[in-house]
Design a binder for these strands. Structure first.
Length: 635
DNA sequence: ATTAGGG
DNA sequence: CCCTAAT
């Protein structure tokens, strides 16, 4: 099963033109006021639009057929989409206006194409509110992709709730479960905020500067009705769905679907390299069931920097606020663009403010499973994707009056959240953690060595990186400050600031602070696993025979020279395992078999040096003893 | 930076 | 392969 991001990591954010944050903010803000949805376009939307334009172009130009080759078949389109690229010869480049879309305008989107999808300086697409938009046409042009006919209202909901969370599109042999928001209108497709580069790139992160965002932190977001049960549930799921991992160190793997194949799959820059190499193209109907949970904010380097400035997803509390005395239950309002919105019920009683987040939508969740997949496996797939998304850790940010509240110590009343009328402006954001996100050193590893051998790995890898780019559209609409360096807030404290008062609504989902000390910055990647070859083992054994175990630095220098990927710690570890391997029966050994001859040498050397060290130790002891009692026992 | 050892 | 503690 595969849960993956539709778009892969091949985005080139760096080349994406951006308007100054200030201007973007401004725009967003005003458009928000006007209720106009900006950049509320999903990848599918964009692609559909692009396709539409391409098709239109073709229709109007009988000589430009070549330019549409890539879009003629859904196969192609789907495949490309998965790469995160929309390859076009850009026959209709001009269709994408460079002019700012009707930002800030309250004018309803016109019916013409350009207003439907236009590229602002800011690279934000302005789009007609989902329903009945042009996309439908584009979609239709791509039979099988997301045409109305094929789109089904396959819904998933959290066990405890009835929330519709996704729409499933049948895509030639596979299902693509797109986003989530409940789309009453069958024509509606998940709305996200991808950006389309003029060169055809589709970028997922909309809002901000396309910076990848992440639920990067450790604090966890737990949807619950009964948090204990829920946690158990998640745990259970994790256990039952995750394949066993050998390396103890892979424990964290469980946290991400992506890790299905272990963290061996690096999610750093290499993702890009690899992506390019294999194109990250996964046949839409690959026989292999793969499951990509994308984990948006986990991947990479390329986006890391920018990610710093990103404030991530926004849990937007537009409406749905109600006081405790209200008879009517909190009304959940759909954010126009769908993704991850949360209706928050606020109950006021004197100095107390209670929150009840009715729902949290998970944005952009793409799942691909073969038609032959069972419902059960589909459930698991969805579960994995969702779990991976949540489990990966996110921190919560609070937005008051549209501004980010940085001071975790300020009270709600001081922040202006004590008054009900202001609660309407309360917002939450899912964002990267407090940890510094230093630009990770790029490992220059042998490209051949690191070249993945399994296409699945590549796919997952890219899927993982891609996910990283997911950004809730709304964030762009919220004028909170974006201060990268100053972003020192502690996620944990942030979370604590929001004390869930659960049970107001039994089925309400609440954000629960989840204590977990961040051990490792998410941006630090686990090295890719590189099994020692017999040759390497031989070299290692040889060196140890001569130098003994313990002088790893020398061993490294001697047998591995400048092999940057083999550190002395690696050698030490390898020796450790070799010794162990040599001590067990051949039947218990795994991995590439090490010649018994070598293992015998390992045993011999180990024995030898062990005794040697004992002797040394003994000598030392003797020397010490002598030093202390130089003249020996005098009594 | 190395080494040692637990995870 | 990671993480720490101790050198």
């Amino acid at each position: 099963m595969v849960v993956k991001r539709m778009l892969n990591c091949d985005f080139d954010f760096s080349t994406f033109p951006k308007a100054p944050r200030s201007s973007r903010r401004k725009v967003s803000s005003s458009s928000q006021r006007d209720g106009v949805v900006d950049c509320g376009m999903s990848a599918i939307d964009i692609l559909a639009s692009v396709a539409e334009k391409l098709l239109e172009e073709r229709e109007s130009s009988s000589t430009s057929t070549n330019a549409f080759q890539g879009f003629n078949g859904q196969d192609h389109l789907v495949g490309k989409m998965k790469q995160g690229h929309v390859y076009t010869n850009n026959p209709c480049k001009s269709d994408f206006s460079h002019q700012p879309a009707n930002l800030g305008s309250s004018k309803p989107p016109s019916d013409d194409n350009t207003s439907d999808v236009s590229l602002a300086n800011d690279c934000i697409f302005k789009q007609t509110p989902v329903s009945g938009c042009k996309r439908a046409r584009g979609v239709k042009a791509l039979p099988g992709w997301c045409g109305n006919k094929k789109k089904e209202g396959c819904h998933f909901h959290v066990e405890s709730g009835e929330e519709e969370t996704c729409v499933v599109n049948n895509v030639e042999g596979g299902l693509i479960i797109a986003d989530t928001s409940s789309f009453k209108d069958p024509n509606q497709l998940p709305v996200q905020q991808p950006l389309v580069h003029l060169d055809g790139h589709v970028q997922l992160s909309p809002g901000t500067d396309g910076v990848a965002n992440g639920y990067r932190n450790r604090s966890k977001l737990v949807c619950r009705d009964d948090d204990e049960n829920h946690r158990k549930y998640y745990k259970k799921c994790n256990k039952s769905y995750r394949p066993p991992l050998t390396w103890a160190g892979h424990r964290r793997v469980n946290k991400s679907v992506v890790t299905k194949y272990g963290r061996a799959v690096p999610r750093s820059t290499k993702c890009f390299e690899d992506t390019k190499t294999d194109g990250c193209v996964k046949a839409p109907h690959s026989k292999r069931n793969s499951c990509y949970g994308f984990n948006p904010w986990k991947d990479e380097t390329v986006h890391r920097k920018r990610r710093l400035s990103d404030k991530g997803l926004v849990l937007h509390s537009d409406g749905g606020l109600t006081s405790e005395s209200d008879t009517n239950p909190p009304v959940k309002e759909e954010s126009e663009n769908g993704a991850l919105s949360a209706a928050i019920g606020v109950h006021s009683e004197e100095s107390r403010v209670k929150f009840s987040i009715k729902s949290l939508r998970i944005p952009e969740l793409f799942i691909e499973v073969p038609e032959t997949a069972t419902v059960g496996s589909l459930k698991r797939t969805v579960m994995e994707a969702v779990t991976a998304l949540l489990d990966d850790g996110i921190s919560i940010g609070v937005l008051a009056q549209g501004k980010k509240v940085r001071d975790d110590n300020s009270t709600l009343s001081q922040t202006g959240l004590s008054r009900r009328e202001n609660l309407g402006n309360l917002g939450f954001t899912l964002e990267p953690g407090p940890e510094k996100l230093p630009v990770p050193p790029l490992r220059s590893e042998n490209p051949i060595m690191s070249k993945p051998t399994e296409s699945t790995k590549l796919s997952e890898r890219s899927a993982a990186s891609l996910a990283e780019n997911c950004v809730e559209n709304n964030q762009e609409l919220l004028p909170y400050q974006i201060d990268v360096s100053a972003d020192e807030q502690q996620p944990s404290s942030d979370s604590r600031a929001l004390v869930p008062v659960s049970a107001l609504e039994p089925e309400a989902l609440a954000i629960v602070p989840f204590e977990e000390k961040p051990k490792r910055t998410e941006n630090s990647q686990r090295r890719t696993r590189r099994p020692f070859s017999v040759t390497e083992v031989e070299a290692l054994v040889h060196s140890v025979e001569e130098l003994g175990a313990g002088r790893w630095r020398d061993v490294k220098l001697r047998s591995f020279g400048n092999a940057s990927h083999r550190t002395y710690v690696d050698l030490k570890d390898k020796w450790k395992t070799l010794v162990h391997t040599a001590s067990i029966s051949p039947q218990q050994r795994r991995g590439e078999p090490v010649p018994q001859e070598l293992l015998d040498r390992v045993s011999a050397a180990h024995r030898h040096w062990s005794q040697h060290s004992l002797k040394q130790n003994g000598k030392h002891q003797a020397a010490l003893t002598m030093a202390i009692e130089p003249s020996g026992p005098s009594m």
